[in-house]
């Protein structure tokens, strides 16, 4: 199995020290995603999804375990995967174009070359004519598009997306999901996607990982056998509902015993 896996998370756990006590954020977690697959992670809040992403992105070391890309360990090597955080984090003093080429600029690519690559992408993926606008002039959906193009242009085979559409309204969210699927189809990236939204997870993914509450760990891995390309109508089919129901059950089972007053 490991032969064909693009990214593997092997026995990764994370323990934080807080007020002199050890707090486990992530129990031993194993994940494996094959090249070009779209995998989602859902789970209750505080299940360590963001911790896991920070570890995969090389921003913090795991307490145990290893993360490999193409068999090579990438622990603590920031910049080996594309990472899109919850907020769009566009730099307000830069134009949309200059925000999108930020990754290339950091890598030292000449501006003219970076622009040459960015402009066609902006045109194709709904940001045509916005290159000289500033982030505060754009709607939430547009800003999120810019942030995703920035991650895309950073040219990594793997993209981590941490609830990228969490702050958008339902309508915008659906159009953004289709937009993301289009990009994913065009570029064949391996995607790891965190979300709270079961519909979103099922609609987008090949595999859905259900995480348990703190300390987080993989509780179940559900394959989504809906053919692609997927259409908004798929959201109401019986198969979709069944899957959704199954996932809801898994999640609520997870919540019940540990029902905390919060």
């Amino acid at each position: 199995m490991s032969e064909s896996c693009k990214i593997e998370v092997i026995g990764v756990s994370k323990i934080f020290r807080r007020d002199g006590k050890n707090v486990a954020a992530l129990a031993e977690t194993n994940l494996a995603v094959r090249e070009g697959r779209f995998a989602s992670i859902i789970g209750p809040s505080g299940c360590g999804k963001s911790t896991l992403f920070n570890i995969i992105a090389g921003l913090m070391p795991p307490t145990t375990g290893d993360v490999t890309v193409d068999g090579q360990s990438i622990v603590c090597r920031a910049g080996t995967v594309g990472y899109m955080l919850q907020k769009d984090l566009l730099l307000p003093w830069r134009t949309i174009l200059d925000n999108i080429i930020l990754g290339l600029e950091i890598r030292g690519e000449p501006r003219a070359k970076a622009v040459e690559r960015a402009l066609p992408l902006m045109e194709k993926y709904g940001l045509k004519g916005f290159d000289s606008h500033y982030p505060n002039e754009l709607s939430g959906g547009m800003r999120q598009r810019a942030a995703l193009l920035r991650t895309l242009l950073y040219d990594r085979d793997i993209m981590l997306l941490d609830e990228p559409f969490g702050a958008l309204d339902a309508q915008t969210r659906l159009s953004m999901q289709n937009w993301l699927l289009e990009i994913w189809k065009d570029f064949g990236k391996t995607v790891l996607f965190v979300t709270h939204d079961i519909d979103e997870a099922v609609y987008l993914s090949d595999d859905v990982y259900v995480f348990s509450a703190r300390p987080g760990r993989v509780r179940a891995k559900i394959a989504v056998p809906i053919e692609r390309p997927r259409k908004p109508e798929d959201l109401t089919t019986e198969r979709f509902m069944e899957l959704k129901h199954h996932l809801l059950e898994l999640l609520s089972e997870e919540r019940d015993p540990a029902e905390e007053i919060s």
């Binding site: 910049g79 730099l91 950073y154």
Partner: peptide
């Protein structure tokens, strides 16, 4: 923002 920059290498 610092996290973002680091994640972009």
């Amino acid at each position: 923002l610092e996290t973002l920059m680091v994640s972009l290498g």
